[in-house]
Structures are given as C-alpha cells and as structure tokens.
Design a protein around this nucleic acid. Structure first.
Length: 572
RNA sequence: GGGCCCGUAGCUCAAUUGGUCAGAGCAGAGCGCUCAUAACGCUUUGGUUGGGGGUUCGAGUCCCUCCGGGCCUACCA
C-alpha cells in the first residue's frame, strides 16, 4: 500500500466556477483520488478556497458585505457544489484559516532568517477615491500606442502592447472611474527566488516524466531575460495574512498582507492541518503527510492544475519550500491541463458564457458531466465543449452501452428466473474468453489510470463496458433459455456479477451511478477486481437483486437545442 | 515584440525513442439479433497527416518557411 497526497489547485473565492475550471483541476484530481483509494492506497486529497486578494475585496464591496462574511458565504456555496459533483476531498479548507496564517508567517520568517527576503521600496499608483493602491490592471486609460480608450495598466487589449500604468493617457481607476490617482512610495517584501534559480533548475531538470506543458513553462521563467526574477510577496491590502507579526525579521510592514500567491499554495499544507484539527487528531497526523522528518518520506505528492497555475507551482512555491531549509514535501508530479473552450469560444466568467457548476447540476446529474468532462479532458491541447458532442457521448456511452447493459441483464433475469442470481449450469469457453479479455482490458485501464492518462483511461473503461454487450450477443441467453435453461442461468449469473464489477471499476468516473449499481445488486463489496475470474463469482446463486431505475437517461434533441441557447451568453 | 503549444477521417481524439498498407469512438452504409433505454453485435465507406521546401534507406514525428488557432509574458488569480 502506498501513501498518496493529492492536491487540486484551489479555486478563487470570487464567484461560481465554470466547467472549464472544474475539469482543469478538481475533477481529474478527484478521479485520481477515488481510483487510488479503490486500489487500496492511503490517500489524502486536499482542496480549499483561495480567499485573499483584491478581487475578493471588490466582490465583497459589490455584494455590500464585509469581506470575511462574503468569503464565508462563498466558501459554503463552493463546498455545496463540490459535494454536488462528488468531489471527494478529505478536507475542503479555506486559505483564510488560522492554520494558514500561522504557516504562512512561519515560512516567511524562515525565508527571512535565511536571507531570502528583501525589503524593496517602490512606486505604485494610489487611488485617493478608492482609498487603495491599484494593481496595474485595475488602472484604465487611453493607450499611447493605438489610442484605445479602455487599455489596462499592464497591457492594451486592443493592440496587445505591454504598458506601464504611467504610460496611459488620462489614467483612471477601473474600480471607481476616479482620475484622482497619485504615484506613492510603498515598501514591500520580495522573495529572492533568483538565489534559488540553480536549485530550482536542477530540480525541474530531474522531472523527466512531467508533461511538456509543465516543464516548458517552468523553463521559460527560469531562462527568460535575466532569468528568474525576485518577486514581491506583500500587498497593500487589508484582507490577508498580516505581513508584520511577532517574531518577523523585518519592520515597517504594518498594514500590509502577504500576496495571495504566496499564501495560497501554503494552504495545501494548512488545509491538511485543518483536517487534522477537524478530526480531533494530533499534529503528527498531518505532518506525516508533509514532513519527511515526521514520516512523509514514502508519500508521493501529486498536484493537479490548469496551465495558468504552473509557474507558481513549479517555481515560487518550491522556492518557498526549499528556502525554508526545513524538510517539507516537494511535489513529485504535476499534472497540468490546457483549457476547455465552449462552443467555438472561451468560457467567460465575466460574460457568463458557458456552463457554470450550479447550472450544470440543475439540468443533469453530476455523473453525466463527470463522464463527458473527464473523457474529453484537455490534456494535450485546448479542447472544446459542444452540446452536440455532449449529447452524443452521454447517450451512447452512458445510456446505450452501460445503462442498457444493466437494464437488459436485470430485466431478462427477472422475467425468466426472478429477482435472484440463478443457479445451475457452468462456465464454458465463452466465459473463459470473456474473463481473459476482461483481464487485459482492466490491466490497460489500470495502466492509464496509474499514468493519469485520463482520456485513454476513459476509452479503456468504455471498452470494458463494451465487452459485456459483446459477450451477451455471442452467448445469447435468450436463445439458450429455450433449449437449455441451465446454460442461460450460467450466462446471466456471470452477467449480474459483471454489473457489480462495472460498478467497482467505474466508480472513479461515475460514483453515483456506481453506487446505484451496487445497491441494485444488493452488494457492498466494492473490492477491486484484481482477478476478474473470482470477482465474477462474488454474487452467489440465490443472491437477491433489484432491477434498478433507469441508470442514465438520454438527452433529447429539444433539450440540447434549448440548453445551447440558454447558455450562449449572459448569466442571469 | 519574445517564448511555448497545437493543426491528423464529417466530429472528438490516438499513433513507443523517425520504422511494416496512419488507428479508435461517434456519425454514414450494409448485415445480424430481439433480452434491453428503437437498445446490442458483426462488417464496412471516409485521410496528398494545414500549404510548400529540406534532412534521411525511411517523416504525422526532425529542420526551414508560410497560413491558421491557442496560451504565457512575472501587479488578475
């Protein structure tokens, strides 16, 4: 048994995530966690909300509530949606937790003591009307290059030229529109990650099995220009982890907080601590996942994230860990994803374009979404959601192939033998061939799952489902029943057992349907079919079952057309 | 501007380090079956691998170039 630590990139607190966000981190992480648990491994699966930063403060102000209250409310919303999608986190934490405050300040102090933090005085734009310093992209103005009037302080969207906020003509606050802007001096802590460049590069170079997407982004940052640059890790905000605290090796940081990207990854650790506290466990119960001096040497740590998160997970967070000089766990494997597009364009949170998690669950159960999203995960390039493709995949794979298999077997048995596993007959050549075939297909499935090749794994699973229909067609119990009922009984006994086997191997992808299948088979034996032959004798003759409700319904053309129109733009 | 990724059958995607007629699923066509959610099984039609050039005994794979799409570019997260 191995020990596997799995973290999903933590979703930002601000608003409800769309399906592209879901498939880029939380959902594949859940698939992997469920699979590894099913294989008997000890798993710690961690996620949380990322709550600090300017957008959270602004969203709270817009909602007319204190930021802490807003975050608490949105955490509950996201938690409920995560539960709705069956995301099996061992703990869904909050980056605003007390545990994260303690750890974030701890890491900062260690980095400071190790000479890796520097106080830098710099000039930033301050908005008097808003009473806050403005991040570059919260400043709007006219582009000096092309004359576009809504250029942002970091880049002009129209001509793509990169800008400094002071380049803008008639700059104004993007928040209030106020033109009362001043350049003010402010002091910030910088993480001197340039000093760790060689160590980081050696470390990245050792990861020869990582996806190209992951390593190429890391290398770009390591080599771009003068190489890895130092990075400001504090901000002039109210909401966050205070940068000035008891024991801090610097002064004058009162009123400042750590940058959200400094404390967010630390929340992976903090959330594990939150988990231990919530369970009433000891310090060592969470440290054994994170500290190699506390029993984490044998832990394999896997992170899941979208490509936009890669620089922070390959460089700045590892720099934080390495720079601490303490034996915290570094990531062993990063699985990164491209983006999922929506019907010819991008999902857009601001425009409400695409399907969001709450909307998805309001029209179809989670398993339908899980299956489509995972079997089309954007692993090698950006991929695309279309309603036509969604309808066809769900109807064919889930309803016709898997759902109908369960239906035809259970209904045939009920009508010919009653609602119990029939006795009599024996396995022949066809059964031996099926078992050999299943053994191979399951092994292929396991290999893809172990390698986190999600699309390939879904294809292998579909092939396992297909094997059942192929077998039924060639064994033809409906024909055998007329001349040799015992033979038909043997076929159906195996087929009913096959339903239980399908429930077990399919559970990582479609946990709710799998639970229904097990329930219909009146079984709670969810042990992995290490040996298909014996797995198919789990339900003995005489064992009762129930014909289940339709496992998956089909999506009609009318529904597809309606949804296509409903989600084309503008969220209500 | 710089960097990276991608372009393969009508659609969604595969093709170990360059190595036998470029493969699946879906859609299409034909046949079979009738237990089942008009479901299932079998067979089968689709490709000058975006265009052009080059290296090689051999290129979807490597190099150059052009076209098209996407991402990142360090103060959104």
């Amino acid at each position: 048994m191995a020990r596997i630590l799995i973290t999903s990139a933590i979703p930002y607190i601000n608003g409800i995530k769309h399906l592209g966000n879901l498939v880029g981190s939380q959902l594949p992480a859940d698939l992997y966690a469920r699979y590894m648990r099913a294989r008997g491994h000890e798993v710690m699966f961690i996620c949380a909300t990322d709550e600090h930063g300017t957008p959270a403060e602004l969203a709270a102000a817009k909602a007319g509530m204190p930021v802490a209250e807003y975050c608490a409310k949105m955490w509950a919303v996201q938690k409920e949606l995560a539960d709705g999608f069956g995301l099996s986190f061992d703990h869904f934490g909050r980056s605003s937790s007390e545990q994260n405050r303690i750890l974030t300040q701890h890491f900062a102090r260690r980095l400071g003591e190790n000479g890796l933090i520097e106080v830098v005085t710099e000039k930033q734009i301050y908005s008097v009307a808003d009473g806050r310093f403005l991040p570059d992209r919260y400043i709007e103005g006219t582009c000096p290059n092309c004359g576009y009037e809504k250029a942002r302080g970091d880049q002009c969207e129209n001509c793509t030229k990169q800008l400094e906020p002071t380049d803008l003509i008639e700059p104004r606050s993007a928040i209030s529109g106020s033109t009362e802007l001043e350049v003010r001096e402010t002091r910030h802590l910088y993480l001197r990650q340039s000093r760790l460049r060689d160590r980081l590069e050696t470390w990245i170079d050792s990861k020869t099995d990582w996806p190209v997407l992951t390593t190429s982004i890391a290398r770009k940052w390591l080599h771009d220009g003068d190489g890895l640059q130092d990075r400001g890790i504090t901000r002039d905000l109210d909401w966050g982890v205070p940068a000035q605290f008891e024991g801090a090796p610097w002064e004058g940081m009162e009123g400042k907080v750590f940058y959200v990207w400094f404390d967010a990854p630390i929340e992976y650790i903090a959330a594990t601590w939150e988990w231990a506290d919530a369970q009433g466990l000891s310090d060592n119960d969470w440290k054994r996942w994170w500290r190699s001096d506390k029993g984490a040497e044998d832990v394999r740590y896997v992170q899941f994230m979208g490509k936009d998160n890669v620089p922070f997970h390959t460089l700045s967070f590892p720099a934080t860990i390495m720079g601490s000089g303490e034996p915290w766990k570094l990531v062993d494997y990063i699985k990164s994803f491209n983006y999922l597009n929506y019907d010819g364009g991008q999902f857009s949170t601001s425009q409400g374009r695409g399907v969001f998690m709450d909307q998805a669950l309001s029209i179809l159960p989670a398993d339908y979404w899980r299956w489509w999203l995972l079997s089309h995960a954007p692993e090698n390039s950006d991929s695309e959601f279309t309603w036509e493709n969604f309808q066809v995949s769900v109807n064919k794979d889930l309803a016709d192939v898997l759902g109908n298999f369960v239906s035809r077997v259970t209904k045939f048995c009920r009508s010919k033998f009653g609602e119990a596993v029939p006795a009599g007959g024996a396995w022949g050549e066809q059964e031996k061939a099926l078992i050999r075939d299943l053994g191979q297909r399951i092994r292929t499935y396991e290999q893809h799952m172990d390698a986190m090749e999600i699309r390939k794994a879904s294809g292998a699973l579909r092939a396992i489902w297909g094997a059942g229909n192929e077998y039924l067609q060639s064994a033809a119990p409906w024909a055998a029943f007329k001349t040799d009922p015992e033979r038909a009984a043997a076929i159906i006994r195996l087929s009913l057992n096959l339903i239980r086997l399908y429930a077990v191997v399919s559970a990582p992808f479609i946990p709710d349907a799998s639970a229904k299948m097990l329930e219909a088979m009146h079984s709670d034996d969810d042990s992995w079919p290490e040996d298909p032959g014996s797995a198919l004798t789990t339900l003995p003759a005489g064992h009762g079952f129930t014909v289940p409700e339709m496992l998956f319904r089909k999506i009609t053309d009318e529904e597809r057309a309606e949804w296509q129109q409903r989600f084309a733009g503008r969220r209500d």
